[in-house]
Amino acid sequence: MTSLALIDLGYGNVESVRLGFERIGAAPVRTDDPDVIARAERVILPGVGHAGYARERVEAAGLAEVLRARTRPTLGICVGMQLLFEGSEETDRPLLGVLPGRVTSLEPAPGRPVPHMGWTRLHDVEEGLGVHEGEHVYFAHSYACPGSGADAACATYGRSFPVIVRKGPFWGAQFHPERSAAPGAAFLKAFLSS
């Protein structure tokens, strides 16, 4: 059994995420094999770019049901986290729906450009995530998830939005732990020990 499966759908920042885990001593296996992903001890669903495109790739790879049925730790990063929700303003397609609510766009304002790009502080951080209140983590996104009752850490950019969610086996990270220096590494370690 693969202990750590990194879903590789042929796009996005998969290698960057793989190297982030490698730096903390883990050895993720890049795969799109539904059987491997179904049976893996832990699964990572990375993603950058368009939520609708990411959703199509998940469907085409036969992974939608596999992901919904996961009972062991499963982490969606950035667009991978957004896919956990029911829907997104970015696409008409339903998303995986393991968390309620709809992802919406961040609106630019004077002095607040979009994409939200850079290092922003965390607030309302729960215990056991490796990251702490007030730490800066790295973001690069134009859409943000809704509150769902699963919020485990938040950040504010115009509005407050969940940065980390946890519900049962599902974890989501809107930030990029693989590019968030020591706090990011600590978060990845926390996921691996969950």
């Binding site: 796009y11 996005g12 950058v48 770019g49 368009h50 667009v79 994409p115 790009m117 690069a140 996104h141 134009s142």
Partner: peptide
């Protein structure tokens, strides 16, 4: 932007 998202 279509291929990778505008944040890239």
């Amino acid at each position: 932007a279509d291929a990778f998202g505008r944040q890239c």
